[in-house]
């Protein structure tokens, strides 16, 4: 069986241009998968003072071959509510902001997709411009806006809602706002992609068969845009779980997030094994939503036509 497979593989390699096909995969194995394996290895190594700050997993000495592995890094993480809470904070941030992006992004994507062709292209360019503008600068823009002396406070004072500037920065609401703002294009663009190629006859057909506009939306448009919703949600949810910059710029100490914890564990505490264990746990935690997204996408991705 394996023998046959290798035979097939070798014949295949002879036929195809080997380097053309496999260079990129070698690259990814070398610089993506081996580094991941490496942090797995470090995550089950024992911490030590020195450089590198962990004991080698395998050692060959006079006493013979020895494997020096430990699960203590993982046990440490999962026995400390501090780390668990940061995971939960990140997941809840990702969940909340995905929902908000969807609620805000869907109508925009819908109306842009349903505009007349010449207006639609202009609106699309307007959607893409923020997407291209530096991510960091867009987060920074909110830092400027939300300052005590910032424009939002000035407007609120001017309108008489408040008398003193209120502190809007450095809390988790500011983080949610920043995340929704920066990730909104990631939700809108895939949604737009699905809605724009939507067969308008299907809407007419639903109307003709007696469906009122609300029902047409719920029974035809919404189910058929599910792949776009799923793709957009995935593009928002996954990176937000590991988000570091936004909590660092806009957040405060009321909630700590996973990305920031890894950063501190590595750069501040210099504890490589714990940082690696945190990263590995992060991957494991992300596998579930990724698999769910993939399965849902496969289930609802109907070929239009």
């Amino acid at each position: 069986m394996i023998h046959q497979y290798f035979g097939l593989m070798i014949r295949y390699l002879k036929k195809q241009n080997f380097w053309f096909v496999f260079t990129p995969y070698f690259w990814l194995i070398l610089f993506f998968f081996i580094p991941l394996a490496l942090i797995f290895k470090i995550s089950i190594s024992v911490s030590e003072w020195g450089m590198p700050p962990y004991r080698d997993l395998f050692s060959l000495s006079e006493e013979g071959f020895k494997i020096d592995s430990t699960l203590s890094n993982y046990l440490f993480i999962f026995s400390d509510p501090f780390y668990i809470r940061s995971y939960l904070n990140s997941l809840s941030l990702a969940f909340t902001s995905t929902i908000l992006c969807l609620v805000i992004g869907y109508p925009i994507a819908f109306y842009v997709a349903k505009s007349q062709a010449n207006i639609r292209i202009i609106l699309l360019v307007l959607l893409i411009i923020p997407f291209w503008t530096s991510f960091l600068l867009r987060v920074y823009a909110w830092k400027v806006l939300l300052q005590g002396s910032g424009i939002i406070n000035s407007i609120l004072i001017h309108l008489g809602f408040i008398t003193e500037p209120i502190s809007m920065l450095h809390n988790h609401y500011a983080v949610i706002l920043g995340v929704v703002y920066t990730y909104l294009p990631f939700m809108i663009l895939p949604l737009y992609g699905y809605l724009v190629k939507f067969d308008l006859n299907l809407i007419d057909a639903a109307n003709d068969l007696g469906a009122k506009p609300v029902n047409t939306f719920l029974k035809v448009i919404l189910p058929l845009s599910l792949p776009g919703i799923i793709a957009g949600s995935m593009l928002v949810f996954i990176p937000v779980v590991g988000e570091f910059v936004i909590p660092e710029m806009l957040g405060g100490s009321d909630k700590l997030y996973f990305g920031k914890i890894i950063w501190d564990e590595f750069f501040v505490n210099r504890d490589w094994p714990v940082a690696s264990a945190l990263a590995m746990s992060g991957i494991v935690i992300l596998i579930f939503p990724i698999v769910i997204f993939q399965l849902m996408y496969a289930k609802y991705n109907f070929k239009n036509e």
């Binding site: 067969d199 006859n201 299907l202 007419d204 057909a205 639903a206 109307n207 003709d208 068969l209 007696g210 469906a211 009122k212 029974k219 035809v220 189910p223 058929l224 599910l226 609802y300 109907f302 070929k303 239009n304 036509e305």
Partner: peptide
Amino acid sequence: PYIRPLNIMFQNYALFPHLNVTNNIKFG
């Protein structure tokens, strides 16, 4: 159109791709 007592069959049929045959027929 959803109140008119008449129906139309589209040139490309406009069948709902997310529904099976029965549910397409049941839709109306």
